[in-house]
Amino acid sequence: MSATLELTCELIRRRSVTPDDAGCMELIAEHLSPCGFTLERLDFADTQNLYMRHGTGAPLLVLLGHTDVVPSGPESDWRHPPFAPVIENGLLHGRGAADMKSGVAAMVTALQRFVTRHPDHRGSVAILMTSDEEGTATHGVARVIETFEARGEKITWCLIGEPSSFDRLGDVIRIGRRGSLCGTLTVHGVQGHVAYPDKADNPIHRLAPALAELTAEVWDAGNDCFPPTSFQVSNIQAGTGAENVIPGRLVASFNFRYSTALTEADIRRRVHAILDRHGLRYELDWRLSGAPFLTTGTTLIEATQSALRRVVGQPARADTGGGTSDGRFVAPTGAEVVELGPLNGTIHKVNEAVPVADLDLLSDIYENILVNLLVA
């Protein structure tokens, strides 16, 4: 069993459901401390954050990942127990196999080989791990970056091991992500008996025309790097549970995944204009999960593409799709950010799995990127 596969299995065995690290960071530290990495814990509230660095000067390359996983759901739905790694038909099964414990393991083994072979590399290389990427991410990388900024520690390049690949390892890299803006809308009506609608005001009926307009709105056409902005309603709650009562209020949750063609302020203004046009009595609470970002610098992208050509024979397609990642906290500091990791077809699903053959290849790709940036 290769070192990367063995470490991936050890990480999967740790039931690190967000924000519980379940000992993953201790395991990572055990592997990297003997290689000369300094260790710093930057824990906040219920979130654990591990920062290990080799070198003291600039430029600084940070390999970024997370040890937490989403819940497995009913374990009876899984072919194999989700936290007991099993290899079957060339696939390693387990919660976090793809998102993102194989990426974490590949980073660790790549770092071990790199600093052993190149102990006098230029600049610094570091690994940053958080136990809350899958949850609210309030006390994870966002707080660590605040700490870095306060002490003047600047990341030059950030390589994130999120599962970016679609059909084969390394066919897609993320060079940016859409923004994520959440809204919680409360529409006020007047509760009453369904037989006397003239004495009530149904907030469901009130919202329906406005909601139709919101869903039909063309928010933008996207641009060369991003798809068009998407508006999606995720939850609607109203009513008492009785079939003869008109509800007095409705609460709806929605999300915008938006491109750099729009700003957060643009979206808020246009949503309020639509709601106001329909005469709703409402309250609307906004939460920005992350602004869109795009890496325009070429150094990290070129180093990554060169490594892919060397290890898998061809470069990747640059993309900005998918959900959010912790890159949204790093990019605003001026760092170049690229995401490259294993296949993402089973992430967050029952029977999550990753091809075993990809694990050592991914570790080799990471090591080649390190060489391209800090040695070549």
Score class of each variant (00 low, 15 high):
33 S>E: 15
92 L>R: 04
256 F>S: 01
327 G>T: 06
285 D>S: 14
159 L>M: 13
9 C>W: 00
123 G>C: 09
41 R>A: 06
343 L>W: 03
179 G>V: 11
360 D>G: 12
117 R>Y: 00
108 V>N: 03
62 V>H: 02
363 S>F: 11
96 G>D: 01
215 T>F: 04
77 D>Q: 13
137 A>G: 03
265 A>M: 05
112 Q>L: 07
210 A>W: 03
347 I>W: 09
154 K>S: 12
40 E>C: 11
319 D>H: 13
242 A>G: 03
150 A>E: 13
73 G>M: 08
216 A>Q: 14
201 D>R: 15
143 R>P: 00
333 T>N: 06
264 E>I: 07
148 F>C: 10
109 T>I: 15
171 D>N: 10
226 F>K: 07
371 V>G: 02
351 N>R: 02
62 V>M: 13
55 G>F: 05
26 E>W: 00
176 G>W: 10
221 A>L: 06
198 D>Y: 10
326 D>K: 01
224 D>C: 00
111 L>G: 06
317 R>G: 03
238 A>I: 08
320 T>Y: 05
283 E>G: 14
305 Q>A: 04
343 L>A: 04
269 R>D: 11
146 E>R: 13
143 R>T: 10
324 T>D: 00
269 R>Q: 14
14 R>E: 02
117 R>Q: 15
255 N>I: 07
200 A>Y: 08
319 D>S: 14
268 R>P: 01
369 I>E: 09
167 D>N: 14
266 D>C: 06
229 T>M: 03
123 G>L: 10
9 C>Y: 00
363 S>K: 04
142 A>E: 02
111 L>W: 10
222 G>L: 11
329 F>L: 02
363 S>C: 13
124 S>N: 04
177 R>H: 08
196 Y>P: 00
181 L>P: 05
225 C>S: 14
79 R>T: 15
187 V>H: 12
126 A>R: 05
223 N>D: 15
30 E>I: 00
40 E>Y: 02
169 L>T: 09
295 T>S: 08
229 T>W: 07
5 L>F: 08
370 L>C: 13
328 R>E: 01
361 L>R: 15
180 S>N: 11
152 G>E: 04
106 A>G: 08
204 I>M: 13
163 P>T: 09
35 C>H: 14
91 L>E: 12
245 V>G: 06
273 A>V: 00
149 E>L: 14
80 H>M: 01
232 Q>D: 10
255 N>K: 04
29 A>I: 05
137 A>Q: 08
282 Y>R: 12
332 P>M: 08
216 A>L: 04
183 G>C: 06
294 L>A: 05
94 G>T: 07
72 S>P: 01
283 E>R: 13
48 Q>F: 09
212 A>R: 14
264 E>T: 15
311 V>M: 07
119 P>Q: 09
169 L>V: 08
275 L>S: 07
64 L>R: 03
24 C>R: 08
180 S>D: 07
268 R>E: 01
